[in-house]
Design a binder for these strands. Structure first.
Lengths: 349, 349
DNA sequence: CGATGCTCTGAGAGCGCTCTCTCGCGGAGT
DNA sequence: ACTCCGCGAGAGAGCGCTCTCAGAGCATCG
């Protein structure tokens, strides 16, 4: 587009070249390129023009070498399962991360952990100073990742409250999570306000803190809930269906269900309809997540607890940036952030 | 685990330190770290031990500064749509890329294009020499990406045959694709061999080369195919269902369907069953992709054309590495690779 | 026994950038 | 008019690594 005087092929112009062209010193060019503070306007203009004309782009490696800043953040995917990416939840979070990182002029380096034996490589990479920090997701309780990260002393932020033993006590990594417990409480209270009296819960996997927090929220409201009203799922549609069938068998009189996520809610919904139960007339149903792809497909439309997933991703980045920018490494690490949830009323409850 | 003498906190050991400890020069340590060719065994051992003891990890930026090699490759995601990652096809390909990149000691930098206005940033990043090369996916015909990549002169490999105007003629980027046309031919021939005589096709989006190649393959075999036997879809389940309904209306006598992908095949299957048609007795059905999540769920199990998606991802990386490692930039760019497909016979045809 | 050739090691010059330190210059204070 | 202060610009020293080049050491050969 711009008529750029094609420079010597293969060799990009350096700071030096720009300085020569603008008739100033390297230092001045550097100052201008990095914001231009403390340089008089006419000089700034002259340098800017030279940069433009030469098509100068700073050499990242050289800059990193002296500043010790990479402008890159690792996103660590430690899920051993296959369908990580397929998880819309995950996609949204990564999207938020990507966007916020861009806003901070940082790059996203994807680190895909290929099983436990791979931590060696990850650790070497993280330790090699390739990235300024790391973003990881709440992993299963026995995952080595947190200790690996701690060992290499790389600033990190987690997505989701970590659940490893003693996580609450020790000064662990900051994390971003939504108010799972509060959201669950709100869902159950809503069901109560509808006059429902036998409210069941389809719980998520026992080793994920989000699921634990949601069941805790349920119990907060329903202090004397019958254990028979709680069924175990694993966040998949199928498990939701199974759990619903189980609940119906145990407590055919139930009049409401709070599922720990939308996927399980949709599974439950299917079973409910197969049994000829009307939603919400006979059984009111509330999910969790407000996952667009699920919510759009259910009939009746699913009432659920919304969490701002993309926003959580962005927040993770902001938290990490705050850690990176604080002068004193020890001084007051930023705390974790719990984002609010919001009950979205639709037709199912 | 290993009793490492905690070095001064915050300061990693440098080559210099290792050299001092081993009693050799920096140059020798460098040689050992980079493979140790041309260094006598006793010295190699001594250096290795010093590296071990100090926990030395080479500084990437310093190395990049002199070698002009980054050890990083950009994966560009230019899909404007939301459900990129959710696409299992995509996930598998990225997985393959990630694995192969790891094998080449390279990192995966994710570049997510946020709409057309974002190409400026992408271009700046690519041009800034942050990465050694780029991997991109076959984009829509009017996408700017190829020209952006060409402008910044970054080695790149595409996934999927590019379809922009004149792509075949000009010396474009190498690409990796499966033999869509051949696979389609095989599918149709299989249907013929089953004695089917009125074989319909549910086509994919007109602006994607994979869909075009598949319909071409269908026509290769069925030279005189009635246009009424072809219905248009867009690779989604829903579109497959719609297309099937349409076909059934136009040609109630059809006895076989070749869908351009598994997703559409599963949509078609649903409609077929709703209409009380038996598969494969009344209508034989063949898909394309052999997508595990779809194939596992269909009843009867779907006969389909398998393509090795992860393998294609790996191939993209290998191709790129070959481009990067050739001394003469102009000399014989490696050609594209077409991977074979394989008909997987199951119950549906 | 010295010359020749080979292999292995070390010295040192950068790679492109940032950043501190110093110096020059102009305006305000006395 | 002279000093003092402060701001803006330049000089130069690295950041940690690679790689060329020259030299040291050794074996072989004439």
């Amino acid at each position: 587009m711009s008529p750029m005087p094609d420079p010597a092929p293969g060799s990009r112009p350096t700071l030096e070249a720009v300085a020569a062209r603008a008739g100033v010193s390297r230092a001045t060019v550097s100052r201008v390129v990095n914001g231009g503070a403390g340089v008089r306007q006419p000089l700034v203009d002259k340098v800017r023009r030279a940069v433009e004309e030469l098509g100068y782009i700073p050499n990242h490696a050289a800059r990193t070498l002296v500043t010790r800043r990479n402008g890159a953040v690792a996103v660590i995917i430690a899920e051993p399962e296959f369908r990580v990416f397929s998880d819309p939840f995950f996609e949204q979070q990564v999207r938020g991360i990507s966007r916020e990182l861009t806003a901070h002029d940082s790059q996203l380096v994807l680190l895909w952990v290929e099983g436990p034996g791979d931590y060696d490589r990850i650790s070497r990479y993280l330790g090699g100073g390739h990235v300024d920090g790391a973003l990881a997701f709440s992993v299963h309780n026995d995952d080595e990742l947190p200790s690996v990260i701690r060992r290499v002393q790389v600033p990190a932020v987690f997505g989701g409250r970590p659940g490893w033993p003693g996580a609450a006590a020790e000064p662990a990594f900051p994390y971003v999570d939504c108010d799972n417990r509060g959201g669950a409480r709100e869902a159950v209270r809503h069901l109560l306000s509808l006059g429902r009296e036998r409210i069941a819960h389809i719980a998520g996997p026992r080793d994920q803190t989000s699921a634990i927090d949601r069941i805790d929220g349920y119990r907060d409201v329903l202090l004397d809930a019958d254990a028979g009203l709680i069924a175990q799922g694993d966040f998949t549609v199928e498990s939701g269906a199974r759990a619903m069938a189980e609940l119906l068998e145990r407590r055919p009189d139930l009049d409401a269900v709070f599922a720990a996520n939308d996927l399980m809610a949709s599974g439950a919904l299917r079973v409910l309809r197969e049994r000829g139960l009307r939603v919400p007339e006979d059984v009111a149903l509330v999910g969790f997540d407000d996952m667009a792809s699920v919510v759009a497909a259910t009939e009746p439309a699913l009432t659920t607890v919304r969490q701002d997933i993309e926003g959580m991703g962005r927040l993770m980045v902001r938290l990490l940036m705050r850690v990176l920018n604080q002068a004193e490494p020890g001084a007051g690490a930023p705390g974790s952030v719990i984002t609010p949830t919001e009950l979205v009323r639709r037709a199912s409850a």
